[in-house]
Amino acid sequence: MNARIELVVATVDDAVPGIRSLALAHPDGDRLPSFTPGSHLVLDVPAGEGRPRRAANAYSLTGESSDPRHYTISVLRCAPAAEGGSACGGSAWVHGLTVGDRVTATPPRSAFAPIHLATRHLLVGAGIGITPLLSHLRSHVRWGRDAELVYLFRDGHGAHVDELKELGGDRVTFLADRAGLAEDLAVRLADQPLGTHLYTCGPAGFMDAVVDLATELGWPSSRVHLEPFGVAALDPGDPFTVGVAGQVLEVPSGTSLLEALEDAGHVVPNLCRQGVCGECRVDVAPGSSPVLHRDLFLDEETRGAGDCLMACVSRAVPAADGRAHLEVTL
């Protein structure tokens, strides 16, 4: 399993409605390991208080990346199932933490690093998606790299607005509505020098719009970088069976393959539990039904080979005979 670090809540800031910023410190007050800008922590969220099982939520680090005293994260509270929402309850749990509380997390991991060969960095974020981009901008300002940031947020609900203003000055543009964003990006994306790379983070619909516009204006995919988060809630799926180590397990609708394997006592390395990180890949043996891949990790070629899947989100789909069964090896 992944190594964990223990952290203690040092400060809590609830100034922006719905968003809590936390500073997490080493329990002994030591410096924390440095990280690549754009990295995230995965916080362990315990089961209980309405959460049927433990969860692991990824939060981008917003603070100083070099030899930091604190890991800072900003968390938007998403309504859990108990309040009629669809979230797992992790963000609500973070909003209930108080100074002095101890938490465990993975060390920082990066899947959204700045491209070092880029001669210019264009950062486009929306809502709480600003968090990894703040850490990018911090690094670009520090090292004197050419960078520009566009931030879309609802008036009064923008996280880190003053900090960005102070850090980036006129390199930072704030926008309040989608129409303004489309207008701004249509001009901006059409006129970037050749060495520019584009980074975007925000709700899926927002990132789709940014990527579509960039593609329309001729941006090749090698210059466009996404940090997916807030993956849209997946439907519960059809029930299926899974064969593993001589056992046959039922995977009911609403339960993931990963959860079914864990409930049966199997240890499956995992991290994000939402199809992003690639950690919970399991091998699929011949004799399995077709797979409904719902992750964001495997490429088309790997999916085509049909010999693996991401246990946290992907499922079996019934074959022609109506049977839905996977044979997996861990």
Partner: peptide, 10 residues
């Protein structure tokens, strides 16, 4: 050409 090119150039 590349000295003045914008992203979108092939």
């Amino acid at each position: 050409d590349l000295a003045v090119a914008r992203v979108g150039h092939r």
